[in-house]
């Protein structure tokens, strides 16, 4: 009886792992396909599709755009999240709970609807579609997240240290940059890398808010029109690799924080 249950759980776990990894393994495997269709039988390994990708100027520039948008929008979201979290944690603000709720509200709304709303708004006030508007969209979706992470990390003992700094004659901006920010740096890095990951992957908002110059997910979307193609596999695998790097950085910063 016990043995059967044990066996059943092992089989179940293997099946679920299989289900979870099936698409990823397929993706990566057939990115090394030597012929032009990413379907069995596997004919590789070959790096020709990676060469095609790196030679494609649209894709490489989209990659650059993606990185720029991700870095700048995440930095901005982290900074704004930090300032608003600090404001909420240190000062008395009327109806604080309601306002905090409002800040985190965008987390529950579909990206499509946020993108849609921004599109309508930008149309109305005449901001053209561009990487800038997509970047603003990414700040909108990542700010609540940064706020939530940073707000949860601001405790009373830090407030005491800040007070001590103020007593010793530090100005408000000195307190913020020399005391508060260094104390919170793991949380700051964590929000930054998490935002990077989301911005890097984000599609709908970029799709709606950019026109000619665009980000990588949108460019991949355009590639999909040509049907199944090992080139898409190769880009997809590269994107996956970069995401994994972001996640690892995120994990590492969080891990270090836990150890302290």
């Amino acid at each position: 009886m016990r043995g059967t249950i044990r066996l059943a759980t092992i089989i179940y776990a293997i099946l679920i792992y299989g289900f979870i990894f099936l698409p990823v393994v397929t993706l990566v495997l057939f990115s090394f396909q030597a012929t032009s269709f990413p379907i069995p039988p596997f004919t590789g390994p070959s790096l020709r599709w990676y060469e095609t990708v790196l030679a494609d100027s649209r894709l490489t520039s989209a990659l650059g755009n993606s990185l720029i948008v991700a870095v700048i929008s995440s930095a901005l979201a982290t900074l704004l999240g930090f300032l608003s979290a600090w404001g909420f944690a240190r000062f008395y603000i009327p109806a604080s709970a309601v306002l905090r709720g409002l800040i985190t509200l965008p987390l529950t709304v579909s990206y499509l609807i946020i993108g849609m709303g921004l599109l309508v708004l930008f149309n109305a006030i005449g901001i053209p579609k561009s990487l800038l508007s997509a970047g603003i969209g990414h700040v909108v979706i990542n700010l609540p997240l940064c706020f939530a992470i940073l707000y949860s990390q601001m405790g009373e003992h830090q407030a005491n240290i800040e007070r001590a700094a103020r007593d010793l004659g530090a100005r408000e901006w000195q307190v913020l940059t020399l005391v508060t920010a260094p104390m919170l740096w793991p949380a700051l890095f964590a929000s930054f890398f998490l935002s990077m990951t989301f911005s890097w992957d984000e599609f709908v908002i970029s799709f709606l808010l950019t026109r000619f110059e665009t980000t990588l997910p949108v460019e991949i979307w355009n590639l999909l029109r040509s049907g199944l193609n090992p080139k898409t596999n190769a880009v997809g695998s590269l994107v996956f690799l970069v995401s994994i790097v972001f996640v690892l950085l995120f994990e590492l910063t969080l891990f270090r924080k836990q150890r302290r």
């Binding site: 099936l22 397929t26 999909l224 880009v235 994107v239």
Partner: peptide, 27 residues
Amino acid sequence: ILAVLPFWTSYVVRSYSWLLVLAEKGV
């Protein structure tokens, strides 16, 4: 971590991968 690793592939890419898996001549 292993169980949620593919979580971090981009949305678009993940959907495309399923297309590969389930295509007419797919895996």
